[in-house]
Amino acid sequence: MTADCFAENLLKWYDNHGRHDLPWHHNRTAYRIWVSEIMLQQTQVATVIPYYLAFMERFPDVQSLAEAPVDDVLSHWSGLGYYARARNLQNAAQTVMDEFGGAFPDTQEALESLKGIGRSTAAAIIAQAFGKRAAILDGNVKRVLARYHAVPGWPGQTSVLKQLWEHAEEHTPSERIRDYTQGIMDLGAMVCTRSRPKCNDCPLQKGCAAYARKETNLYPGSKPKKAKPEKTTWMVILEDQNGRILLERRPPNGIWGGLWSLPELDPAYGADELQEACERNLGLDCGEPELISGFRHTFSHYHLHIQPARLGVTGQQGVRDNGQHKWLHRHEALALGLPAPIRTLLTNPEQATLL
């Protein structure tokens, strides 16, 4: 199958089977496409749609996002995970306002200068928002091309990625670029799936090297497995006599960066030492701790064993409301940007064990 046939057959399939009515297809501005592309990194379309609609309602344009309080942005991202995406999103919006006069640039180089935008995301904005030819290579496209050309190896390797980019450039047409980029993403998401691909429904079947060899399961190659480290922490739900809970802002970088979370204590403390630890570290007098069932939360590069404990606060000298700490009633806390496990702990501690 020639490069032209590749695009031609894909577009015929897209016309009949692709997704034509996604929220970001309406009023297709660079801003709206950009937000959708960032949300779709590491996240499926069905999950993204309600978040996207709520985000657009609150931040309808780049200026509103740039000027919003960071807590508001993180709150609207809460539950999507990979929170650096939200911080980068606002940082890029501020750059667009400050350096580009509020208008999104339409070149690869300028878009890649914005925080959180890489080569494929920049290309998707160029193609989808501006209708200009640009080759994309997200996870779905990598899978389609790796199978079609039987490219061995894990796409995270530089040499493999280089081959896939060459194939992406080769197959990207000059016409109907919006439909082509959406179509190849849809094909990867709906037909050329990670497991049990629907090869009999694929418009590219005749030219697919992996299908011809009956080796679709071998492409793309898997990431080399490495055992994830195991970490442990105490998380304390500290509730004062007015029913308010103490929240602590996470550092701006790293896991859950910038979100509000529960205070953590060194796992070396025993349960009978938590009262003393709260006084020593936070300046709080507390009652006896009530232990809640612990659970494990998995991040991309380690497992975290969380042991929650609830303590009533009887007196305080140390922690007041400031930029790093807040005393809030539960309904107020739940309005902030919270990591998903913390949100579950505050609403239904028993369900946290299922995370």
Results as ranks from 00 to 15, higher is better:
Q163C: 06
L111A: 13
L53T: 01
Y211H: 14
G79Y: 01
H26R: 13
R296F: 03
N88Y: 03
G294S: 15
L161K: 10
L40N: 07
T2V: 01
T344C: 14
Y31A: 09
D266P: 06
V313N: 13
R250M: 11
S300A: 15
E99W: 03
M97Q: 11
P69E: 14
T29G: 10
T29S: 15
N16Y: 04
P155I: 12
K223R: 15
P339K: 13
R250G: 05
D106H: 15
D138N: 06
T29W: 05
S64P: 00
L345K: 11
L291N: 08
P339E: 09
L354Y: 12
K115T: 00
N242I: 02
K12E: 14
V151W: 04
R147G: 04
C199V: 00
D71W: 02
L218I: 03
L89W: 00
D4R: 14
G139F: 09
R58D: 01
F6W: 11
T107P: 05
A150M: 08
L334T: 02
R143W: 02
A135W: 00
R250L: 04
L111R: 05
L284H: 06
N91P: 00
Y31I: 00
A268Y: 05
T216M: 13
N91T: 03
E332T: 02
L334D: 09
T2C: 07
A209G: 05
R133D: 01
L10S: 02
Q108Y: 04
I184A: 13
M56R: 11
I126K: 04
A127G: 10
A309V: 10
G221N: 09
Y269D: 10
D15E: 15
